[in-house]
């Protein structure tokens, strides 16, 4: 279970995330998708229950969390980049746990090399020195993806990575995403509200309704009945009064 500000968001969630595959979490807004991602990267601690990670064990103390987070990276919905820093400096932030916070030295050459490689893998090496605030929404999201990939993670979490991207670019970005996953053999958990993209890129779909798991299976099993269960009872809009001006 997980709480946010005293409100119980996730209840009785029991899941096993398959390794080396893309798992998409779908559901209406407020269903607990983001909270589930934040439970997996430790930004929200469950108030009861545990998270277990292959190779690390139960996440119950600072050491196990450190070990888990070292192999984890997250792509955020609103990019979570620093606008005045260049693309490569933002990607380097993904490696901030690898240097002393009070060091006044410049970033080591090996880390800069890794950041440049990550930017190259999302096709943005040419824009490496451009400040992020001058990049387009799609380019920013690719910088966010590069900041996650530079960590060489075993687990990649993504919260609505295509939410603020031009629909025309979503196809390109989701291909980038899929390619990155294949090249590195990652385990991916991705929150998506565009169901068609979820069905096209995921190996597995998890449907959340009001903090419960309502569907858990392959995309081919996510039929109209399952869709009804996950996206049911959208509040009916009350009709406008006839004499409204």
């Amino acid at each position: 279970m997980a709480r946010l500000g005293g409100r119980l968001v996730l209840q009785h969630v029991s899941l096993a995330i398959p390794g080396g595959a893309i798992t998409a979490i779908v559901g209406r807004s407020g269903a607990g998708k983001t909270t589930l991602i934040r439970t997996l990267n430790g930004l929200v601690r469950p108030c009861s229950g545990t998270v277990q990670v292959a190779g690390v064990g139960t996440l119950d103390g600072p050491q196990s969390w450190r070990a888990h987070r070292r192999r984890t990276a997250t792509v955020f919905q609103d990019h979570a980049l620093i606008g005045r820093l260049s693309a490569i400096d933002n990607v380097l932030l993904g490696l901030a746990d690898q240097r002393h916070p009070l060091s006044l030295l410049p970033w080591p050459r090996t880390l800069r090399q890794r950041a440049a490689t990550a930017l190259d893998s999302v096709g943005l090496l040419a824009r490496a020195e451009a400040p992020v605030c001058k990049l387009s929404g799609g380019e920013r999201q690719r910088v966010g993806l590069a900041r996650a990939l530079v960590r060489d993670p075993a687990l990649l979490l993504a919260d609505e990575p295509f939410a603020s991207v031009d629909p025309a670019l979503v196809g390109q970005l989701s291909r980038d995403f899929r390619a990155a996953v294949w090249q590195c053999g990652l385990t991916v958990v991705i929150v998506l509200h565009q169901l068609d993209i979820a069905l096209s890129i995921a190996d597995r779909i998890i449907g959340l309704v009001d903090g419960h798991v309502a569907f858990d299976g392959p995309p081919c099993a996510f039929d109209s009945a399952a869709r009804g269960r996950v996206f049911h009872n959208l509040r009916a809009l009350s009709p406008l009064p006839k004499d409204a001006p």
Binding site: R69, T72, A80
Partner: peptide
Amino acid sequence: PGEALRSHG
């Protein structure tokens, strides 16, 4: 951005 860093430990 700080949350992103914290999520990386």
